[in-house]
Amino acid sequence: MSLLQLTTYIAAVFFLVVVILKTVKIARMPVHLRWDLYPIPHEKGKAAYGGSYFENSSWWEKPRLVSRAGELREMVVEIFSLRGVFRNNRSLWWFSYPFHIGLYCLVALIVSLKIPVVLHWTGMPVGGQAPGFLSLALQYAAHAFAAAGWTLTLIGGLGLLAMRLFKRDLRSYSRPGDYINLILLIAVSGAGFIAWVTVDRDSHHLRDLAHSLISFLPAPTTTPAATACLVWLTDILLLYFPFTHMTHFIGKFFTYHKVRWEDTPNRPGSLIEKKIQQAADNPVGWSAPHIDPLSTWTEASGGGKVPDGEK
């Protein structure tokens, strides 16, 4: 195993483990109170104007109409157009959009480089040397993804860095970590761009390396320095990435699906109700004069006792 392979395995495994642990940590957080925010795209027939099932009288007696397709549509539009930024922060969108599209292209590039290897395992005659339509299509796709990915990420990253440096409202809120994130991403995309332009226009060096990595074969001996540099920079990025807000793709899943769009009503006997009852057994803990910190949430809320009023 070459050093390049070893560092890449370590970085990839480390990245996956930390990302999974972060995801699990959030997923295991206690049930929280509802904090819906409309529009919610799965509200069937109502999402377009921001309506909800609360618009129906006796809503709890009626079937809940949920459109997963509507939710998916909203996600696809948001992911591929960054509509929120386009509508609310147009100057940032001009760089954020190519930057994100570039990153998507790079993910697609990695996938397109690995598909031939996976298909090869299944016995299909595709791969670097194999002829055929699929092989050709994958090669063209890799070309396109590499060209768009390296270029757009580099342009977008440089633009975002310039905005952070020169736009007052961004600069005064940016921390060193924000600059390091961008510089690292620019370094990776810059190295990728240089390698692509100078030594790897058809990404075959990357493909060979990907092949060796997922097949556990010896590393190719002909990896050029520019490509090796790109891989090592990517390894550094993978080691650093999970500890930054660049993992907002994880956070975004939860902020949207588990907070903003989480409008599941608490039905008697439901799992939600059980989770609430468990949480309400916790001691309150807060110490202001109107609170007994040792009481449970159920006790602190009065437990349903109603004092006699002045009659």
Partner: peptide, 29 residues
Amino acid sequence: FDPRSNWTFLEPLFLTMEYCVRCQTCSAA
């Protein structure tokens, strides 16, 4: 940030603390 004292809003608060990218898109709204 204690899951017992603030189970009521810990998750949304934690997400906001961790994942804001300080892009200031919120300001115009």
